[in-house]
C-alpha cells in the first residue's frame, strides 16, 4: 500500500501519520532550515525559522502535521528573506561574538546564518548586559548567546527529570534562569553528564576545560553542518 504524500517545493514527500512536516522532510533527506527543532524532542515552534507555506499559508513546519495532498513551499525568495531576518534578530538580541566563542564551528545559529547568506545583523544591536555564571565546577553558562529555544529546559525536565532550567521575564526581557534560590548553577542538581548539558544549539551551556580543542576545519559543523546531516550527503 502506498504511503500518503505531500509535495515540498514540487517534490513528493511520503510521510507516516502523525509526522510533522519537518519530520517527514527530514526522513526524506530534505532540509528545511530550522533552529529550535530537535529530532529527540517535541516541537517547540519558537524560532519560526522553519516557516513554510502550506497551501499558501505560512506555518511553522515543526508544529504542522503532514497531511496528504498538501502543497508545501519552503524555498521561496520571500521565506528566504524572512529566515534571514529572523537570524538577524537573534544576532542583535544577544551578544554573539563568534571569533571568541568556543561553540564556533558547532553552533546551529552560526551555521544557519552562513548557510542562509546572512552577512550582517542588519538591525541595531541591543548589547544586553548578561553576566555569565561560572559557579558550577564543570559547566559554564554564558547567557549572552541564548536564543531561548528551551531545549535545555525541556531536556532537563523531560529527560534528566531535574528541572534545572526555566524561562522568566517576557518580551525582550525573557531570559533563562536556573532552579536555585541563589540563582547559581552550582546550587542546582545539574551534572555535566545531564542531557541538558549537551543539548544547547548555541554556546550557552559549555563544558569547562575542553574548549577550542578541535582545530578549525574539523569542528562538528565543518565536517557535517545540519543541512548535510539531514541531506545525508558528504560535504563537497
Amino acid at each position: 500500500m502506498s504511503r500518503p504524500r505531500f509535495t515540498l517545493d514540487g517534490v513528493p514527500v511520503e510521510f507516516d501519520e502523525g509526522q510533522t512536516l519537518i519530520e517527514a522532510a527530514r526522513a526524506a533527506h530534505t532540509y528545511i532550515p530550522f533552529l529550535c527543532a530537535h529530532p529527540d524532542f517535541p516541537a517547540h515552534g519558537s524560532c519560526r525559522v522553519c516557516t513554510v507555506l502550506v497551501n499558501g499559508r505560512p506555518m511553522a513546519a515543526c508544529t504542522t502535521r503532514a497531511a496528504a495532498g498538501l502543497t508545501v513551499e519552503s524555498q521561496t525568495p520571500s521565506l528566504h528573506a524572512d529566515r534571514q531576518a529572523l537570524v538577524q534578530m537573534l544576532l542583535v538580541e544577544g551578544n554573539h561574538f563568534c571569533p571568541g566563542c568556543e561553540k564556533s564551528g558547532g553552533c546551529t545559529l552560526q551555521t544557519l546564518g552562513t548557510d542562509l547568506g546572512v552577512t550582517s545583523a542588519g538591525f541595531a544591536h541591543e548589547s544586553p548586559q548578561r553576566p555569565v555564571d561560572a559557579s558550577h565546577p564543570d559547566l559554564l553558562l554564558d547567557f549572552n548567546r541564548c536564543i531561548l529555544c528551551e531545549l535545555c529546559v525541556r531536556a532537563s525536565a523531560d529527560v534528566d527529570h531535574k528541572h534545572v532550567f526555566a524561562l522568566s521575564g517576557r518580551g525582550l526581557h525573557k531570559h533563562l534562569i536556573v532552579n536555585a534560590e541563589s540563582g547559581r548553577l552550582a546550587d542546582t542538581g545539574m551534572s555535566v553528564d545531564d542531557v541538558a548539558a549537551r543539548v544547547c544549539p548555541v554556546g550557552v551551556i559549555l563544558k569547562k576545560r575542553v574548549g577550542f580543542s578541535t582545530p578549525i576545519g574539523q569542528r562538528p559543523h565543518d565536517v557535517a553542518p545540519p543541512r548535510t546531516q539531514v541531506e545525508g550527503k558528504e560535504e563537497p
Binding site: C47, V92, F123, A124, I147, G169, R170, G171, L172, K174
Partner: peptide, 21 residues
C-alpha cells in the same frame, strides 16, 4: 506591543521592539 509581547517567538519578541525603535 513590544512591552506586551510574551517573548515566545523570535519575530514578535524582537520585531515589535525593532519596529518601536
Amino acid at each position: 506591543f513590544a512591552h506586551e509581547s510574551c517573548g515566545f517567538c523570535t519575530p514578535c519578541r524582537v520585531g515589535t521592539h525593532v519596529a518601536a525603535r
